[in-house]
Amino acid sequence: MAEDLSAAPPRPAPPKARDLLTRRLADIVCLPSSQIAPQERWMVADVLDELLRSADLELRVKVAKRLAQQHDAPRGLLRRLAHDQIEVAEPILRQSQALSDFDMMDIAQSGATPHKLEIARREQVSETVAAALCTSSDIEVMSVLLRNTGVRFANSTMDVIVRVAAEHDTIARLLIPRPELRPAQALALFWSVSHELRRTILDRFAASRKILQDAAEDVFPLAARETAPDAAVREALAYIDRRQRDRKAAEVTPFGSLEGLVERAAQIGFTEELRAEAAVLANVQRDLLNRMIDDFGGEPLAILAKATGLSREHLTAMIEGSGRMDAFNRVEQAVRVFDTMSVDKAQTVLRYWNWVIARAARAG
């Protein structure tokens, strides 16, 4: 009886020579170091590299997945596959331990966004690679980096992210909890974020100065007796000092006190004269006082009031004098900060802001 050939399963086509050779060479390249000399691995990698240039996508993906697991994978071959289509590059960018920081920095600077995102998702990302990824200020890449607890950021990179966060709420929300964020950076970001994020910044970064005050307690009288005051010491002690108001200015002000000035501002508004006198009495830079009065929220004025010992009623009077009593719930937001912040912490924030503006003025 004749065999029914129609019922027999089709025989698989023999592998193409390219596919077979590529797989064999990949096997050799992936051998452990104990079984192949470095020179042999490099030689085989060169041949494999040439074959992969014109190989189909499926074969390139298979080779990339194998090489991603190899600690001794040839660097040149890895770099080329890391620059390939994202389907090929993904396992190498995400997993390969043989890929150097230099290689990843090159991809971060010249690669497409999908390639950058895979690097940002790696289990560990160094400061140098994170810096390269942040250079383009790509919001999506920064978001992935900030969510990744295995990423380490240099201080200069945090400065870049702070500038982006000032314009993008999503980045600000991810940035504020990061352990690398310094108080100076957070308090600079304060001015650009929402009421909610402002409170978060104050809760985390408005620190007490008690440790500084205890350390400098006997320095104050010593510095006062010096005939040639040290400018740096004087500036540092001004930051540490428990007193905020200028007492000498209070003795000669035509308004009697800072309270009296605030009461007058509530009646006629913060004129240029009142702003100038208030800055002197509160012992802050004029530019800082203007910024607090003109700010969209009431939190800066709450910090000023708390730091200078004003009452809640005088805080409300300051907001009224600013001419923006109802804008953005200024009173509600201000009172919330005023009631929850200590005098010491409010002074820390105010002194920092004042110090930054004073330093910028000297530099200019």
Rank of each mutant, 00 (worst) to 15 (best):
I201M: 02
K16I: 00
L222A: 13
R198C: 08
R121C: 04
E251C: 01
D326S: 10
V129D: 03
A2P: 15
V331G: 03
L146M: 03
A282Y: 10
L20E: 15
L261I: 06
I293N: 05
A89T: 03
R351W: 10
A317V: 01
Q35N: 09
G256Q: 06
A26G: 03
S208C: 01
D344A: 08
I86T: 12
E272N: 14
V252T: 15
A89L: 08
R24L: 08
S33L: 11
Q333D: 10
M341T: 12
D4Y: 12
L258W: 11
F270W: 15
L5V: 10
A13C: 06
A334H: 07
M158D: 04
E3Q: 13
D218S: 09
L5R: 13
R242V: 06
L133A: 01
A7S: 13
S96E: 08
D344Q: 13
L5G: 01
Q347S: 08
R324S: 12
T271F: 01
R247V: 12
E272A: 13
T200C: 02
S311D: 06
S110I: 08
Q185Y: 01
I28P: 00
D294G: 00
V151C: 15
A26D: 04
A188L: 13
P183D: 07
L212N: 03
S194G: 07
I211G: 05
M142V: 00
P221L: 02
K16E: 13
N290T: 13
T170L: 12
K65L: 09
M341P: 02
S156L: 11
V160M: 13
R147G: 13
L175V: 02
L52H: 03
P32L: 00
D241E: 09
S54Q: 09
G269C: 05
D344T: 11
A82I: 10
D138T: 02
R94V: 07
E217Y: 05
P32Y: 02
K210C: 02
R286G: 09
M292R: 05
R275T: 14
A279N: 10
I268K: 11
V284C: 12
A334G: 07
P221S: 04
G323A: 07
V280P: 01
G323T: 05
A224P: 04
A186P: 06
E3K: 15
L261F: 06
S257T: 05
A188Q: 15
M292H: 07
R75F: 01
P12T: 06
L78V: 11
R178C: 00
M104Y: 00
E123S: 13
L315Y: 06
A250N: 01
